[in-house]
Design a protein around this nucleic acid. Structure first.
Lengths: 213, 213, 213, 213
DNA sequence: TATGAATGAGAATTCATTCAT
DNA sequence: TATGAATGAATTCTCATTCAT
């Protein structure tokens, strides 16, 4: 009888264990020995699940990118006013901020360790996926979703670079405030970016489905 | 001792040559041999100017951080309306965006390669310096300057991760727009964040000097 | 205990499966995993039949060495003229050339992986066994049998190193020709190597038995 | 001033030092550490001269193959009777027998470690070069040169497998004898392989030049 | 100062072997 | 017996740093 192990499931567990380690110290600054130790297995076993060190990073990036968004999808509601929806979303973001930060650092390691167009494309898909989902769930025009995502990315970067240097809550409240004011303004017939409409209208959009990764 | 001047000047030249290499491939992914080759000198000569590899990163971070801000100071005007000033500033930002991106990536390498409170402090000073200068020159309350800086950081991150994935001009215009609307709203007596006032008033601020690094 | 017979029989089957793999890629260049895969069993099962990797090589060398010679014995006739006998023998050789080639390469791996006098002795016994049998069946003086064996060894080496680089048939015909001429010459009273006589005389040699391995 | 080292010359020296080691223990059974130790340098320095372990084997095979033949060319005379020439040649062979043995073993490691057509081609060129040169200097038809080379290869193989198991001198004398008899026979009008003529005629062949490698 | 060969500790990776099932 | 996951010592290779010139 062979030892019963769900190979793929276990591999994902191992990936999870690498997440913090990689983002914390940086992919290049972690040795396979350290990884194995952190995961509580031998280097040989590590290579049983991942053919190369690089493959850990690649799979980790793919896996965590997908996982985060999936959780985001579940946490977000499509109903309610814009204020309610953005409130929920920012709560979710604050709860997951640390994970986003790790992904941000990981994404840099990922593209740097490859230096190919392919890797850039993968990174881009990951980013786009976030933004598109934000646009859909918050019912924002893509340009505004991009604006928001960009800001959140900047927030996450700062908080990772110097943890505690900024007040997440304050900045997120400000973001909400700024968006509400700006989008409120644009509800007026005098709004300048008319192509950004309609949004914030509370119509039932049955076609609003999750964007495929 | 003109020798020392030459020596230091040359060292700064060498630092400049490392900037792209480091931010592009990542500090850990570049070998001393590669650095020497890029700079057109031997590894021995490289060690003549820098005692360790780490010292290159450290000096590079210090040097480039200072240099960027200095240039920013010269490029920004204190006079004119807020719209004019922010326009000038964003022009400057767009011109320097690539350098900011490199610094952003460098900052991550910097804190990771040290992983000490000290390094975090250094990185924080660098960030704060930017933000304070922005607050001063744009006459923004620090929270708004932080907001702007955060957004710009996010922009720079995205553009480095996947160059060309976003339209810098579009997003910067949007930022300007958003800020104008938001700040305009707050000039009204009904503004909600009264603690953010006064700003955009064109009084002579004698205390508005460059913030010391 | 029929189990043991099965066990041993199966082990010999497994040995046979290793023959090509070892001689082709070289003992050191084949991993236990590759061997197991080639044999269609797990590494665990492989270790059930062979305590170590080295033991596979050892048993393989012993087993194949014995097997080849046994087959040679059966294929060769003691009767007929020298020309007939050498013709039969060379036919047999051509049919088995590939197996001889594998053994030749294996023999090198064998002595190298041991590097002891003992291993050399084993290899020598294997070689000698061939030569002695050749001498007996072809009724050649040992020096001539050695000559022939040496030539055949060289042939096999070349054909293994660069398969198809030589015409086996041509060279074997030439060998036969050369031997016939040379031995014919020596039948004359003027032959120079009188110590090589008598041979090719068709006397009944009761002592002509298979040489014990 | 850089350390003055003739890089290529030194590399060839290092190659020479690997020759015995490789052929003795086998390429795969020697570690880079052992090689470095044998050569009296550090592993780092070893990698300064050879990018990979495989490259050592490759370069060694190329270099020694060429070197041996060059020496053979110098040692062999074009003049004199066939008996004289073959005598000289076999003397040279006996003197170099050990080196040939090493090359033989090396050639096996070489093709085994590559397993590509290219490697086989390289090995074939090496073999062919020997044979062609033998044909030229001994003025033998290529088939007879092949015959001789094959025999010598077999001799070398046996002597490497079990050093001292055969009497080189005896077997070489026998080879000479056999060849003389066989070729003498073929000088007669009744010779069967008439296409093998003319040889052993002592004409001045100005066009007899070394075969290009 | 400059060169680039040399060093050797340490990194990624391999693989014979063991062991829980 | 059979499986294949797990082990960890050993291997190939890298690279910051030193040093002879």
């Amino acid at each position: 009888m062979p030892k019963i192990v769900d190979h793929d499931k276990y591999r994902e567990e191992l990936l999870g264990g690498c997440f913090e380690l990689f983002s914390d110290k940086g992919y290049s600054n972690v040795t396979m020995r350290q990884i194995a130790k952190e995961l509580g297995i031998s280097t040989g076993a590590l290579y049983h699940y991942f053919p190369t060190k690089q493959s850990i990073l690649d799979q980790l990036f793919q896996y965590m990118g997908k996982k985060d968004v999936e959780e985001g999808v579940q946490a977000t509601s499509l109903s309610g006013s814009f204020e309610e929806r953005i409130g929920l979303f920012l709560d979710f973001f604050r709860a997951k901020e640390s994970a986003f930060g790790k992904m941000l650092l990981l994404s840099i390691d990922f593209v740097r360790s490859h230096d190919t167009m392919e890797a850039r494309q993968t990174a881009r898909q990951w980013l786009d996926y976030y933004i598109r989902n934000m646009a859909v769930y918050l019912r924002l025009p893509s340009q505004m979703a991009e604006f928001m995502a960009t800001f959140l990315g900047g927030l996450v970067y700062q908080n990772r670079l110097v943890p505690g240097s900024i007040s997440l809550r304050e900045q997120l409240d400000l973001l909400k405030d700024v968006l509400m004011v700006y989008l409120g303004e644009h509800e007026n017939p005098k709004n300048r970016l008319c192509n950004l409409c309609p949004f914030m209208t509370d119509h039932n959009s049955t076609e609003t489905e999750e964007v495929s990764y």
